[in-house]
């Protein structure tokens, strides 16, 4: 029960962080925490009482299924970890790009800047730059 409960807690923590935290790097960290929660769940599922590490001794040829941890969730989670680092790398590339383009990694500041610059009618039509809210405000 304990690993399942803590996996649930980590999952909730990660999901809450992804939804609630405004900083994009923190969101990314929260996503990673959520992924680890899923991996914890699967690994807990793979254990067997009295089971061994799923590697045979060199001389061993016969194996009984009940004696070994379940290797299938291990394989799947190995895959998940490698994919998670790929996701993280891609996300960090996006974050650096966002930082270069908009000078912020805070969701709220980004949204106000996006609204400010995306309003083409105001900018080109009226030519009144002062109406663009958000674009010029100091970041803090």
């Amino acid at each position: 029960m304990t690993p399942y409960a803590l996996a649930a807690a980590l999952f909730t923590l990660g999901l809450g962080g992804m939804v609630l935290l405004p900083n994009l790097v923190r969101k990314l960290l929260a996503m990673n925490v959520m992924q680890v929660a899923v991996i914890v769940f699967f690994i807990a599922l793979a254990t067997k009482d009295g089971g061994r590490v799923p590697i045979l001794e060199p001389g061993e040829t016969e194996a009984i299924a009940a004696d070994f941890m379940n290797p299938l969730p291990h394989t799947l989670m190995l895959t998940a970890i490698v994919v998670s680092v790929a996701t993280t790398g891609l996300a960090l590339g996006l974050l650096i790009r966002i930082w270069r383009q908009y000078g912020s990694l805070d969701e709220r500041i980004l949204l106000s800047r996006l609204r400010g610059s995306g309003d083409d009618a105001t900018r080109h039509g009226a030519g009144d730059d002062a109406t663009r809210h958000g674009a010029g405000e100091p970041p803090r």
């Binding site: 254990t47 009482d49 194996a63 299938l72």
Partner: peptide, 25 residues
């Protein structure tokens, strides 16, 4: 869910026994 460490849980009785028993051969 079945208790942690239960060797007869569905996750441990369907595909993986074959992997464990036949992988070496």
């Amino acid at each position: 869910l079945p208790p942690i460490g239960d060797p007869s849980s569905p996750a441990s009785t369907h595909v993986s026994p074959r992997f464990i028993e036949e992988a070496r051969r």
